[in-house]
Nucleic acid binder design. Structure first.
Lengths: 179, 179
DNA sequence: GCGTACTGGATGACGTGTCAACAATACAGG
DNA sequence: CCTGTATTGTTGACACGTCATCCAGTACGC
């Protein structure tokens, strides 16, 4: 930023760190925009649509409870609910009620939804490879993984420290999100 | 994903790559959510607000043309315009017209905006350090930087290849975004 | 000067994300 | 059984992003 802080000398980032941080932000913004755009153009799906469809397609019967889905994706239930509403309107999924627990709902993958995800997946993998993995070394893949796990561990720790109870919505680990 | 593709054997990610990719997605989702939440709680600003304010505060007179700002942030002009509208309503910035080019507009940092960014910055840096840099080695900082630059270079290349003209809106490099 | 093309910027529509509140059901204890 | 509490899921309000479009003003060829 501009000048030294008002009190308690904030440890500003070193030039190295600043450079890495800015590069990281830039990378993510552009990479995610590009992946989204390509998927939208090629298959009419957003990355969010795709992630949901992938989860559903990995359940044999293509039928999952909402909260289970939310946990698998690492999303808040409200976010998922909105997303499902939109996807339902486009015929990608359906809701069906659950007889064992009448509060609950099953989300069901439609044929159209299955077709969409199967069409989109190979293209998406190619894109991820093209922009990311084809451009970095095997060592860098390892570094990326290590960094990501380290950061997630720190977030988990902060979450647990802040208050064991309330974090429930966002502290779940995403089983696996896509690809 | 689930099974092999319909045609032209898509090169699926290796387990290593899958693991890294998922970890990366998870890290980014959670890190950005956390940084956003902390800034919102502590200073009432979003990361987007903050980025704009930082840019403005780095111009001596706190007065920048919209397109220049958009280029510095690496944002589309429309996104910036919406953002500025919201920020103006909250008194963080003002718009003033430009006499040299009567289409144009200057964006001016208000006192309130300056106070907000100066309050938020040290806390934000601390958070970035706490969740990211304090948890990784110096080597990993280098790796992160290298990876990010490699990816951005590939995106630039794709952008240039696709058509030198139309990419204009999103191909600009962000001068520096925050911290 | 005049028509045409380009530029700077705003706007509206719509998809997306967060938070807070809510409804309905489940369940535990008295 | 009845009452309080926790859980499942939806909704509404609002911030944010993208795309397509529009408008005013500038620039440029003639």
């Amino acid at each position: 930023m501009t000048e030294q802080a008002t009190l308690a000398a904030p440890r500003w980032l070193t030039p190295r760190e600043q450079r890495a941080w800015r590069a990281y932000l830039d990378m993510h913004a552009r990479l995610s925009a590009q992946l989204n755009r390509e998927m939208q153009d090629a298959s009419g799906l957003s990355i969010a649509d795709f992630s949901v469809l992938v989860q559903l397609s990995e359940h044999v019967d293509g039928r999952v409870r909402v909260l289970e889905l939310a946990k698998a994706l690492g999303w808040e239930k409200s976010r998922l609910s909105h997303q499902l509403t939109r996807m339902q309107q486009r015929g990608l999924v359906e809701r069906s009620n659950c007889s064992e627990d009448r509060r609950g709902a099953f989300i069901v993958l439609t044929d159209s939804g299955r077709a969409a995800v199967e069409d989109a997946a190979p293209r998406h993998v190619e894109a991820v490879r093209r922009y990311l993995f084809d451009g970095i070394t095997d060592e860098q893949v390892g570094a990326l993984d290590a960094i990501a796990h380290a950061v997630v561990a720190r977030l988990d720790a902060a979450c647990a420290a802040a208050g064991p109870d309330p974090c429930a919505d966002r502290c779940a680990d995403p089983g696996d999100s896509c690809d």
